[in-house]
Computed example of a mutant assay.
Amino acid sequence: MYKSYFKRVLDFIFSLLLLPVFIPIVIIFGLMIYSQDKGPIFYNANRLGMNGKIFKMYKFRSMKVDAPDLRNEDGSTFNAEDDPRLTNIGKFIRKTSIDETPQLLNIIKGDMSFVGPRPDLPEQYKLYEGNEKRKLEVRPGVTGYNQAYFRNTIPWKQRIKNDIYYIDKLTFMLDLIIIFKTILTVISRENVFTNQEQDNKSTDLK
Rank of each mutant, 00 (worst) to 15 (best):
A67N: 10
P68Y: 14
P68D: 13
D69Y: 12
L70G: 06
R71K: 12
E73F: 10
D74N: 03
D74E: 10
G75V: 00
G75Y: 02
T77P: 05
T77Y: 04
T77I: 10
N79A: 11
A80P: 09
A80H: 15
D83A: 09
D83Q: 10
R85D: 03
R85C: 10
L86I: 13
T87A: 13
N88Q: 13
I89L: 04
I89A: 02
I89T: 06
I89C: 02
I89Y: 08
G90C: 07
K91W: 06
I93Y: 02
I93E: 03
I93K: 01
I93S: 05
I93F: 05
R94Y: 04
R94C: 02
K95E: 00
K95Q: 05
K95I: 04
S97V: 04
I98F: 01
D99V: 00
D99W: 04
D99F: 00
E100D: 06
E100N: 05
Q103T: 02
Q103C: 05
L104N: 06
L104C: 04
L105P: 05
I107P: 00
I108E: 03
K109C: 11
G110R: 10
D111A: 01
M112D: 08
S113E: 11
S113N: 03
F114Q: 08
F114I: 13
F114A: 08
F114G: 08
V115G: 03
G116Q: 07
G116T: 10
P117G: 04
P117E: 06
R118N: 01
R118C: 03
R118L: 03
P119E: 12
D120M: 13
L121I: 15
P122S: 00
E123M: 11
E123Y: 14
Y125R: 15
Y125V: 15
K126I: 11
K126S: 15
K126F: 07
L127P: 06
L127I: 12
L127R: 13
Y128S: 15
Y128I: 11
G130A: 12
N131P: 02
E132C: 00
E132Q: 05
K133S: 13
K133D: 12
L136K: 11
E137A: 07
E137N: 07
V138W: 03
R139K: 14
R139W: 05
P140K: 03
G141R: 05
G141K: 06
G141V: 08
T143Q: 04
G144A: 02
G144F: 04
G144T: 03
G144S: 05
G144E: 02
Y145V: 12
Y145A: 08
Q147R: 02
F150E: 14
F150M: 08
R151T: 13
R151F: 08
N152R: 13
T153I: 14
T153G: 10
I154R: 09
P155A: 14
P155W: 15
W156I: 14
W156R: 12
Q158H: 11
Q158G: 06
Q158I: 10
R159A: 09
I160C: 09
I160Y: 10
K161I: 14
K161G: 06
K161A: 14
K161H: 12
N162H: 09
N162G: 14
D163C: 00
I164R: 11
Y165G: 05
Y165S: 14
Y166W: 13
Y166F: 02
D168R: 15
